[in-house]
């Protein structure tokens, strides 16, 4: 292919004139190069077509749409590996515009050229790596599902230092306090590697909530606590029957105002229009609106 960028503007105009390109006389060099490239490509389009048919398909991995995942929208650009172009200055940005002339249909609605918002040149940031430690003693539980709880910790604060000083030969143990729906909380204990920092602990259906504690265990069962987590409820995975109770929450009255009336929490009742009514009237209303269900 001819390298139009090496030609002078006069040469480019001559070429454009010969090809019958309209408006060539007012075009800038970049525009001329663009239109000539297009014109050139169009001339040899028959050749191109023939070549496409024989060329092996490039790039994209075949993926049948019929095998769509439940949330296909996030699969964007799957086969395309991220590769960033080098950062550029403003001048380079403007040069990156498509240099072909817009079709007439486009020109109608875009009188101006691509006047892109140009960034102030942003220098490279040297942000480094994420910190290894925040200099604290912390132990945090995060729910994952009914059977697993995520747990992470950091032992870099005063309390853990003190514990190590008290029991230099102690073993680091993780205690879990599992509160059951009925009965006393259950305590389990396991030795952990101080280097772990992140792990998952097992929970069971029926466990109400879990709290964790890290500390040192010494001879004779001595336990020196370092840090305790908050108590976190375990997600449930079973049906919880109970007597149904109904209420009316009129959309046109703010929740704040309804709260001030002592409402929703069960103190008072309103009808479908937000008027305060007594309990018997409300019972009749529910019976009307919810056939077959028992009030409260």
């Amino acid at each position: 292919m001819v390298d139009f960028t090496k030609m002078t503007v006069a040469e480019l105009r001559k070429e454009a004139k010969e090809l019958g390109i309209p408006g060539f006389s007012v075009m800038k060099k970049a525009e001329l190069v663009g239109v000539l490239k297009v014109a050139h490509a169009e001339r040899s389009e028959d050749d191109l077509k023939k070549r496409t048919k024989d060329e092996p398909k490039t790039g994209k991995v075949a993926k049948d749409k019929t095998a769509a995942k439940p949330k296909p929208v996030k699969e964007k650009a799957k086969a395309t590996k991220l590769k960033e172009p080098a950062a550029v200055d403003d001048a380079a940005e403007l040069e990156q515009e498509p240099v072909v002339d817009a079709p007439a249909s486009v020109r109608e609605v875009t009188a101006s050229k691509y006047n892109l918002v140009v960034a102030p040149s942003i220098p490279e940031e040297h942000l480094g790596l994420l910190p290894e430690s925040y200099g604290q003693d912390r132990l945090v539980l995060v729910p994952k599902d009914p059977n697993w709880m995520f747990l992470y910790w950091e032992l870099a604060g005063e309390s853990s230092k003190k514990a190590w000083a008290t029991l230099p030969d102690g073993k680091l143990v993780l205690r879990l306090y599992v509160e059951q729906e009925k009965g006393a909380p259950e305590l389990t204990e396991q030795e952990v590697d101080a280097g772990w920092k992140r792990t998952y602990i097992r929970t069971r259906d029926g466990d109400h909530s879990v709290a964790a504690e890290l500390g040192l265990k010494g001879p004779g069962g001595v336990f020196v606590s370092m840090v305790r987590s908050e108590r976190i409820p375990v997600p449930v995975a079973r049906i919880r029957p109970g007597a149904p109770k109904f209420t009316v929450v009129p959309l046109n009255i703010s929740l704040r105002k309804l709260r001030e009336q002592g409402y929703v929490s069960g103190g008072s009742y309103v009808d479908l229009h937000g008027r305060v009514i007594d309990e018997d009237e409300f019972a009749r209303l529910v019976k009307q609106s919810v056939p077959g269900s028992k009030y409260r």
């Binding site: 650009a77 950062a87 918002v117 140009v118 960034a119 942003i122």
Partner: peptide
């Protein structure tokens, strides 16, 4: 804005 074209902006 630091790049003239950025794939994820697509």
């Amino acid at each position: 804005p630091e790049y003239p074209d950025f794939l994820e902006e697509d």
